[in-house]
Design a protein around this nucleic acid. Structure first.
Length: 430
DNA sequence: AAAAAAG
């Protein structure tokens, strides 16, 4: 199958070629005909599968063929600013020969940004890609009409609901014509999303490229390492010379900030990335990282979904992400576009259960790496100290574990230890 | 155990 099978408008086809797109990915092959036949769509799909183009192409093709373009033809809602920017950039690439216009609408910028957005929305722009909060602000100002919109896309719908955007999205959608075609993309399909989708979509077709499985090209490994040893291990990984473009994830902004400072002190070229940074700073850092001027990025899960940077060869989970889905998303930042990459996760005592949950989700075990010689000794000492600490707060913690563990009947760490033997070569990457 | 998004 090739893209010419979809009979896209010539100008769009030209854009596709210029961007080097040749063969549709599985999700594109499935969803494009459904969208072209005017059906609503629920798609269970992760980023990195060609998801964005799977809705952009048929939508843009339809816009090309419109005799009279409305003020706004299509609206895409996305959870993070970076993702909105990235989708907008993909539109711009594909639209190069089509005359289709687009804008990313998101907060955090200065007043000028707001005014530019406002003007574009009022004067008319074919495709709007927005984070919900800022779009609501524009709606409140009264200068924006969404009633002519023909295509509505909810990207990363599960994430948007997690972030509490449900009411905002409903408010926005109420202003969009009921004649619209609606497409909802989500990495997961819990009942919450289904109910939500039911209210917004009409007789949707469903596509499942789902997979709670990471891409083929990712080599995964985990280290059992106490908090005290994490920095040392990370330092070894980063200074090994094996990796040239790295994202380190940590679950809290505070840890990201601390880690950024610590690694900076070690002389590594690294920037922290989290939502407390001013938006222009976020954009500058990400640009440097994409341009390979910055080798190491340390970020929160704001970066875990959708961010597409070519040539990331290592993802480090400095801690195990609270939501197992986020693990898949985090490590999906590497090995993109048919390349290969490594994903390494640091698992401390407390994170053991959570990591086991991730392995269950993926239905596969992640190989255990052996700590470097020098560290193994320290590890024992540190682990002992750890145990002592835990003992002092034992009663409360233990009760929590019991509650959480009840009913799953699965010993958390089973199978994780027997991976150790087969790992003699793991140190070579250090 | 969290993060993100409006100002």
């Amino acid at each position: 199958m090739t893209f010419s099978d979809f009979n896209f408008d010539d100008s769009l086809f030209e854009g596709l070629n210029s961007m080097g797109f040749k063969t549709p990915t599985p999700i594109q092959a499935e969803t494009i005909p459904i969208i072209q036949s005017k059906h609503d769509l629920i798609a269970c799909a992760q980023t990195g599968t060609g998801k964005t183009a799977s809705y952009l192409l048929p939508v843009m093709d339809a816009i090309c063929r419109m005799e009279h373009r409305p003020i706004i033809s299509a609206l895409v809602l996305a959870p993070t600013r970076e993702l909105a920017v990235q989708i907008d950039q993909q539109v711009e690439g594909l639209a190069y020969f089509t005359g289709i216009t687009s804008i990313a609408i998101y907060g955090g910028g200065d007043g000028i940004g707001y005014e530019q957005q406002r003007k574009a929305l009022r004067d008319g722009v074919d495709i709007v890609i927005a984070t919900p909060g800022r779009l609501i602000a524009h709606l409140n100002s009264g200068a924006v009409r969404l009633d002519e919109i023909k295509f509505l896309v909810l990207d990363e719908a599960d994430r948007m609901l997690d972030m509490g955007f449900k009411d905002d999205i409903n408010r926005i959608v109420r202003q969009v014509s009921t004649e619209r075609q609606t497409m909802l993309f989500s990495a997961t399909m819990p009942p919450k999303i289904r109910t939500f989708a039911k209210a917004l979509l009409k007789h949707p077709k469903q596509v499942n490229i789902a997979i709670s499985k990471p891409a083929e090209g990712i080599t995964q490994r985990h280290y059992r390492v106490p908090d005290e040893q994490k920095i040392a291990l990370l330092k070894q990984l980063l200074q090994s010379g094996t990796y040239s473009s790295v994202i380190v994830f940590s679950s809290t902004k505070e840890k990201v900030k601390i880690l950024g400072r610590e690694l900076g002190k070690l002389g590594l070229s690294v920037e922290p990335f989290h939502s407390d940074l001013p938006q222009d700073e976020r954009e500058k850092i990400l640009l440097r990282f994409k341009n390979k001027q910055l080798p190491i990025l340390i970020g929160t899960d704001v970066l875990s979904r959708g961010i597409d940077v070519e040539g990331i060869d290592l993802v480090v989970n400095y801690d195990v992400p609270p939501d197992p889905e986020d693990y898949i998303h985090r490590i999906g930042r590497t090995a993109r576009a048919a390349r290969t990459g490594t994903a390494i996760t640091f698992v401390n005592q407390r994170d053991t259960r959570r990591f086991a949950a991730i392995e269950r989700l993926m239905d596969s075990e992640v190989e255990e790496g052996q700590l470097p010689e020098g560290m193994a000794v320290e590890r024992t000492a540190a682990a002992t100290a750890n145990t002592a600490k835990r003992r002092s707060s034992k009663p409360k913690k233990k009760r929590n574990f019991r509650q959480k563990g009840r009913g799953n009947g699965q010993p958390a760490a089973e199978g994780m230890n027997n991976a150790t033997d087969s790992n003699a070569g793991a140190n070579s990457a250090l």
